[in-house]
Structure formats: structure tokens, C-alpha cells
Amino acid sequence: MYTLGEFIIENRDNFPYSTESLLRLFSSIKLAAKSVHKEINKVGLTKNIGSSGKMNIQGENQQKLDFFAHKTFIESFKHRNVVCGIASEESKDIIIINKKKNTLNDQYIVLIDPLDGSSNIDVNVPIGTIFSVFKKNYSCEKKVTINDFLQKGIKQILAGYIIYGSSTILVYSVGNGVHGFTLDPSFGTFYLSHPYISFPKKGNIYSINNGNYEKFSNGIKKFIEFCQKKDKNNLYTSRYIGSLVSDFHRNMIHGGIYIYPKTELSPNGKLRLLYECNPIAFLTEQAGGKASNGYERILDIKPCKLHQRIPFICGPKNMVFKLEKFIKEYE
């Protein structure tokens, strides 16, 4: 059974840049993930639970573990000397890392949602971390700017997530399939457990917050009505956790579509393009699925600001195409 490091070395030809730099990136991710995993697993026994009493840049109530995860991942990336800039969903501005003498030539931009689904912390529902990595736009000698972060999702060289649930699993892709590694806490090692994950060709799960039904557009409503018609040829079932990582992980394995559309109150959608939609869209396509905002491919959207929100749909191709057809017909 491969460890994560062994798997990266074995498949080094699939990554066009330095293998050492990729190993350093994952060293940062693994170290931070294990710290967050440990903190989550004892959350009911510590004071690191509940609201921090502060609002984050998104205007959302920041949980204590949000801040812990943010700080842990940022510090971990800072000490591996391959990352020159970081953007976090919990931070208003980009974080520039000063170049050190032993920095590798391969310089990377990291965008991260340190703790997705943090509103579920108090009730022991699976939550996660989402990460996205780009090559810096220009020479390492030039200063990092906001434009290094505003790249189309198709330019990602690495994307993934960690899901903290009944087990802690790290899932990633460098553009050659999607692979999952489960943490063995007794050794602190991630082992390959889910090689070449792909969406089932036909899915039957739809994941959407039906509590917002009256605020949805007509196309979304018609799709939900279609899914709810029960007959022998239409056996869709609704499953919604409220944590993007958890919903996506289940749907990628069992076959289902995830939908977070625009609403009357959120005409631009709610999920962030850079921290959530781009990396999940990258994984979706690598797993044989499709990711869309209802009208266009997510990975082709040119970001215009750091915390941009968009409607988001991802899942098996046939389900996403069907929903897009409803949107086109009724909107």
C-alpha cells in the first residue's frame, strides 16, 4: 500500500514541475491537516469550539476552529519555501511570503478554504479543507501581485481537499485522475485508499438546500420537481449535508449532483470561485464529471476579484447537462 509520498514519487512523470517542490507542498498540507484533524477529534473536550465572536471577511460568524485552521495552514505553507503567496477565505487580503535563500525556483500560489462547513462543527458533522495551487504568473524575481491569484481555474496545477469525518481522507489531483489517501492516526501517515476515483456514469442523488426552494429560479425548481417524480424510471433521492466537501465527496463516490444556485437574496450565488468552486470543479472534471454555473464551464471563468461568488453545479455529466437544459428552457 502506497504512502502519499511514495505515490507522488512513483507518479512523478505526471507532474510537469519539480517533484521536490510537490513533495514540499504536500508536506505542508499533511502537517497542517494532521493538526486540524487532532483538534477536531477532541473539540468537545477543549475550549476551541463555538463562535469566536468575530465576523470574517465574508460577513460570516467565524468559528474558533476557522481561525485555528487558517493559522495552522498559513504557518505550515510559510515554512516549506515553495509558496510565495497565499489567499485564504478567512483573510481580506493576499499573504505574501518573503523569499528565502534556499527557496526552490518553482514558486506557487495557494488558495485555501481552511475549514469548509464550519457551522457543522458543534454537531459533529463531517467538515473539510479545500486547497488550490497555481504557478506564479511571472518570474520568481518579480513581486507577487493580486493578478497571480486571479487566474482561470483551468490553470490549476494541483487541487484537492481533506475531509474530516469517520476517517480523515486527503483527496487530490494534479491533472491525471483523482486519488484519495486515508490517514492512519496511529502512524500519522496517509495511505492510498481510493485510487482513480470517478463519478458513476449515472447518478441518482441530488444535493441542494430545499429550504431555499421558494427563492430558486424557475429552471432549478423544474429540475427539483423532475427529480421528485417517483416512477420506475426516475429514482432520484435527495441528500444534503450542508458542507461542500462532505456533499461532494459522497456524490463523487456514489453518483450525484451538487447544486448551490443563485437565489433572490444571493443573485451571484454564495460559494467562492477561487476557494471552493475552482478546486472542486478541477476534481470534478478529473473524475469524469462536469462543473458549471448553469451556463458556462467553471474552469473557464476569469476571476475579477479575490472573494468572488458564483452559482455552482457539479456532478456526473448526464445530470449536469439535464439541469442546464432545464435552466435554458425555463429562464
Score class of each variant (00 low, 15 high):
294 G>S: 08
34 K>W: 05
295 Y>H: 09
1 M>G: 13
74 I>Q: 10
3 T>V: 12
211 G>R: 11
290 K>E: 10
325 K>A: 11
212 N>E: 13
266 S>T: 14
207 S>T: 13
123 V>H: 13
313 I>M: 04
34 K>P: 12
330 Y>L: 05
300 D>P: 06
241 I>R: 05
66 D>W: 02
182 T>C: 13
142 K>C: 08
36 V>P: 07
131 F>R: 09
105 N>F: 07
235 L>P: 09
133 V>F: 03
92 K>N: 14
212 N>D: 14
208 I>Y: 05
22 L>E: 00
282 F>G: 04
131 F>K: 09
198 S>I: 05
239 R>I: 11
250 R>N: 12
197 I>D: 07
175 G>K: 01
131 F>H: 01
236 Y>L: 06
293 N>S: 02
278 N>C: 12
315 G>L: 01
303 P>Y: 10
210 N>W: 03
150 L>D: 09
123 V>A: 12
245 V>F: 10
55 M>C: 12
32 A>G: 09
182 T>W: 00
11 N>A: 09
42 K>C: 05
187 F>S: 10
156 Q>V: 11
22 L>G: 01
38 K>V: 07
42 K>Y: 04
85 G>N: 01
155 K>N: 15
319 M>D: 14
200 P>K: 06
47 K>E: 09
174 V>C: 14
183 L>M: 01
150 L>K: 12
170 L>W: 01
1 M>K: 14
206 Y>H: 10
32 A>Y: 04
160 G>T: 00
228 Q>D: 15
206 Y>C: 02
139 S>A: 14
176 N>C: 11
194 H>R: 12
58 Q>G: 09
134 F>T: 00
72 T>D: 07
203 G>S: 05
53 G>D: 13
168 T>L: 04
227 C>W: 05
43 V>F: 05
47 K>N: 08
80 R>C: 10
252 M>K: 03
304 C>V: 14
184 D>V: 03
259 I>N: 09
123 V>S: 14
157 I>E: 00
174 V>M: 14
227 C>A: 11
20 E>T: 14
